[in-house]
Design a protein around this nucleic acid. Sequence first.
DNA 1: TTGAAGATGATT
DNA 2: ATCATCTTCAAG
Length: 169
Amino acid sequence: MSDRLDRTFFGRDALIIAPEILGKVLVRVLPDGTRLLLPVTEVEVYRGLDDRASHASRGMTERNRVMFGQGGIIYMYLIYGMHWMLNIVTGDEGGPEALLIRGVGETSGPGRVTRLLALGKDFYGEDLTSSTRIWLENRPAVENFTTGPRVGINYSGEPWISMPWRFRC
DNA sequence: TTGAAGATGATT
DNA sequence: ATCATCTTCAAG
């Protein structure tokens, strides 16, 4: 019995998954075999073609194509020329959604998360439901969490700028 | 082909 | 408040 989260978990709406994923344990097996186990503490939702803060709002491109696929796949991208962002695609085929992982364990900040976990370009498209080097393990849902507007998306305008799609515990 | 901007983080 | 650093994408 594995308690790895499966396609059923990731195949749902990002807004349903966001509060549930808090406290779930992200497992990363480093090249030398070391295992890092860290609970997810903060995520942001990027959801749908209309969401102007989402990369998917300008249609499918080479970069964002995995966002349009099935849930459970990793979407990595480089921002500001130096920080890799870890995203987990959610929902069904066709509906572009993803959760940006902004914090794990004591580490806060999406760029810090990927540096801590040694994640970069080669994790683009990785399947969390079958990978041997990264996955999520089930845990009870956390009791308390807060929500608020997303960070760094002031270009997106209303109502997207104000959507309370940031979740943390 | 080119240039402008960006789902950040560290430092002043 | 500023800057480091470079890929992506849309415009030309």
